[in-house]
Amino acid sequence: MSKAFVPTAAKPGVITANDLREGHNVWMCEDGWTADPARATLFEDEAIADLALLKAVGQSNLVVGPYLVEARRGPNGPEPTHFREAFRQRGPSNYFHGIQTVKQAVTQTEASNV
C-alpha cells in the first residue's frame, strides 16, 4: 500500500479510509463517504483524484488514513482488483461481520423497495 497509485482511464481508482468514530471501512462517494463500496466514486484522472484525496485528508474529523487504490469498473459499481481490497469490501472470512453485513442491508432495502 505504500506506492502511490496513479489512476488513469485504463486503471481507475477509488478513495477509501476508515470511519474515525467507529472504525468501519468507508469509500468516498458523490455525497461524502459511504460504507457501500459499490457507491464509491471511480477516479480516472490523476489531477481530479489528487484533489479529492487532499479533500479527504482535510476531513480528518470524519475519516482516518484515506488512500487511493486501484479498482475496476463493474456492472454494479467499482470492484476491487487486489485481494486485500476485496477483503476490506467483504469482511473477514471466518464470520459474517464487517462490510458484508452492510451490503446485505443494502440489498434487503433495495429488495423491499421494488
Binding site: L20, E22, G23, H24, F87, P92, H97
Partner: peptide, 28 residues
C-alpha cells in the same frame, strides 16, 4: 480532543497505540 479536531491523526496515533488501540483492516 481527536474528535473535536484539536489533535490530528498523526498526533493521536502514538497516543492510541500507547493504550493498545490499533487501526486494523475493518475496524479498530
Amino acid at each position: 480532543r481527536r474528535l473535536d479536531g484539536s489533535l490530528t491523526e498523526d498526533e493521536f496515533r502514538p497516543l492510541r497505540l500507547m493504550n493498545g488501540v490499533y487501526l486494523q483492516l475493518h475496524a479498530y
